[in-house]
Amino acid sequence: MSKVLIVEDDPMVGLINKKYLEQMGIMTSYGPVMIEEEVFKYVESEKIDLILLDEYLPQKKGMDILKALRDKGFYCDVIMITAANNQNEVEKAYAYGVIDYLIKPFEFERFQEAIEKHLKRRQWLNNKGTIKQVDIDRIEERDETNIELPKGKNKRILDKIIAFLQQEPEKVWTLRELAKAIQISNVTIKKYMDYLEETQQIDVKLTSGNVGRPEHQYKLKSNQYKI
C-alpha cells in the first residue's frame, strides 16, 4: 500500500485530496502539511512513496521543497497539484522529476489517473531487478499511445481495473469480488475482463461457484502489466 503525503496550505483542498485517496482505498495518507520541516519529517519517518505537492505555500515554495528533497537524495514520486500554470513553472516541475501535474481546479477522474500512474510505476520498479527497455517503455506508457479499444470500452475504466489488479498480482478474483472492490457493475466489469482475456493479460479459470453454478476466476498473468 502506497504512503502519500499531502503538502497543501488550503484546508479545503487538502481535505478533498484526502477524501479522493480514501475513495480509491489503496493507500495511506498523511497531512496536510505546509512547511519544509514537516515534509522532511514524514519523508524520513514514514518512508513516503508519493507527495501531492502544492506550489504556493506560506514559507517556502513547493518547487523549492522539491529541489531540496532531490538534493538530499529523496526520490519518491511527486505530483504537483497547484494553481501555478505558467510554462516556466510546469517546465521546472518536470525537470525536477514530477510524474504528473494537476492544475486546480481538477476533477476526480484526472486525480485518479495521476494516482494510477504512480501505482503503475511503483509496481514495475518494486518488482524488477534488472530493468529492460520494454519495462521503461511501459512505465512511461509509450506503448499505449496507439491502442484502440473496442467500441463501448473506456480506457480510463480499463486503466482503473488493471491498476487495481496490480496491487495484488498473485490474487485470484471472481467477478463479484472485482465488481464490489472497484465499484463497477458485474455486467460492465465482465466486458473488460473478457477484453483482458482476449489480449492475454489475465488467466481465467472456470470453477463451480457457491451455489453450484460455473464461476469465472481471474488472475493477472505473470509479468503482464500492459494496459
Results as ranks from 00 to 15, higher is better:
136 I>E: 02
32 P>S: 11
183 Q>G: 04
54 D>R: 07
110 R>D: 09
146 N>A: 12
226 K>T: 15
143 D>C: 13
192 Y>L: 01
155 K>Y: 15
140 E>K: 14
44 E>Y: 03
35 I>W: 00
147 I>W: 08
43 V>I: 15
198 E>M: 04
39 V>R: 02
97 G>W: 11
77 D>T: 01
21 L>R: 07
109 E>D: 12
189 I>G: 02
88 N>I: 15
117 K>Q: 07
122 R>I: 07
39 V>I: 13
111 F>P: 06
66 L>V: 08
148 E>D: 07
86 N>W: 03
212 G>D: 02
205 K>P: 05
107 E>D: 10
181 A>Q: 10
225 Y>H: 09
79 I>N: 03
32 P>T: 06
127 N>W: 01
54 D>F: 01
225 Y>G: 14
21 L>I: 08
87 Q>G: 04
191 K>M: 02
92 K>H: 12
222 S>H: 12
125 L>S: 11
130 T>D: 08
107 E>W: 03
132 K>T: 05
36 E>A: 12
65 I>W: 07
174 T>S: 15
201 Q>C: 09
112 Q>W: 03
197 E>K: 07
4 V>L: 03
185 S>G: 10
225 Y>P: 00
79 I>K: 01
184 I>V: 06
126 N>H: 06
124 W>H: 09
50 L>H: 03
46 E>R: 09
177 E>H: 02
78 V>I: 08
63 M>K: 02
151 K>W: 13
56 Y>E: 11
187 V>T: 13
202 I>F: 03
146 N>P: 08
152 G>M: 09
189 I>C: 02
216 H>I: 06
162 I>G: 12
65 I>C: 02
49 D>H: 08
177 E>Y: 00
7 V>A: 04
109 E>A: 08
37 E>D: 13
64 D>Q: 15
191 K>P: 00
213 R>A: 00
60 K>A: 01
188 T>F: 02
183 Q>E: 13
73 G>D: 03
129 G>I: 04
82 T>C: 00
157 I>L: 14
47 K>A: 14
99 I>H: 06
